[in-house]
Design a protein around this nucleic acid. Sequence first.
DNA 1: ATACGTGCAAAACTTTTGCATTAGG
DNA 2: CCTAATGCAAAAGTTTTGCACGTAT
Lengths: 115, 115
Amino acid sequence: MIVDIIHDSSSPLTAEDMVACMKKKMPEVDKSTVYRTLDLLEETGCVYRSESDKGIVFHHADEGHHHHLVCNKCGKTVDVEEDLFLPVEKLLVDKYNFQVNFQHMVIQGLCKSCQ
Amino acid sequence: MIVDIIHDSSSPLTAEDMVACMKKKMPEVDKSTVYRTLDLLEETGCVYRSESDKGIVFHHADEGHHHHLVCNKCGKTVDVEEDLFLPVEKLLVDKYNFQVNFQHMVIQGLCKSCQ
DNA sequence: ATACGTGCAAAACTTTTGCATTAGG
DNA sequence: CCTAATGCAAAAGTTTTGCACGTAT
């Protein structure tokens, strides 16, 4: 059900958001269960945790879509191909000898209709 | 003095880190003062707040250095030119009609000697 | 006198943990 | 039975707020 919530949401949700969603759908579910389930889902690779303006947010772990554009106005999200940052990663290695892996980035910005 | 701490630190610090540093240098300073000062410094543009693995961290706002590479092993940081993400920003506009501004990114990775 | 910055304490908010209960194998 | 998941309550950790006091203008 948590996975459903993540899938249904148009934007990445924080743990607190999840708890609130859960309360609506199943009032008897406790927040500790939500937190524990999120940990579990993350361990098993079903969801990803990453940082955004809202704090720590969770995403589904569908194949082939590994970054998320989030519109700061309407909240709409778009999935983006994983290799978006490859050029940047290469530059950082070449110029700074610095090894980076951009994964599941939450990228805040403005979508076409909100600009 | 908070600005000094930020400058002196080899890696971005969380608010709690600051409080701890402060306690060492001036034990009588209260955490609320640290939090309030950080808010103030951010409003006046002296420091920046951004997200990293550690949570919310603060940086100095020197001109010309706008992203930070942080080594996950040794904690060393390197400042990176602001336009690092320009190609990515352009791609996101062209391909997704999505307007993004990467600012003061904290980029986690491994430095040369820790790889 | 007044306005401001501070320390202190308490509150608020988020996340984690311990424990007793329950449901399923 | 026995294991594992749950609800509940309390604890822990982080950040914010109210208030009274002192200092400098």
